[in-house]
């Protein structure tokens, strides 16, 4: 069993492609492009869900003004060791 065309290193001057499964490059390209496009689709979904959660978080805390006030208070506490 061998996944590649290399079975020794004696005829180096005749070697071409030496990665495993030579001949499957077309299929690999399709898989690679599908992986890339799939990543975008999944990322967009995750980002939309993240923004939805962010909006709920902001609403729960009383709106952007309250969030900023709380953040300022936390930073003040941090800096004075509260």
């Amino acid at each position: 069993m061998s996944t590649g065309l290399v079975d020794n290193w004696l005829n180096l001057d005749t070697f071409g492609a030496i990665y495993p499964f030579v001949g499957t490059e077309g299929m690999l390209a399709v898989l690679g492009i599908a992986f890339w496009l799939g990543w975008h689709i999944l990322q967009i979904r995750k980002e939309s869900a993240e923004f939805k959660a962010d909006m709920e978080n902001i609403k729960k805390q009383g709106g952007p003004g309250k969030v900023l006030e709380a953040e300022a208070k936390r930073e003040m506490n941090d800096s004075v060791g509260g």
């Binding site: 071409g16 492609a17 030496i18 990665y19 030579v22 490059e25 690999l28 390209a29 690679g32």
Partner: peptide, 17 residues
């Protein structure tokens, strides 16, 4: 330079497939 080219991978420069 195509993504399915054998030259877009480990290659020793010998004859093409």
């Amino acid at each position: 330079a195509t993504p399915w080219s054998e030259l877009m991978g480990t290659h020793m420069g010998g004859a093409p497939q």
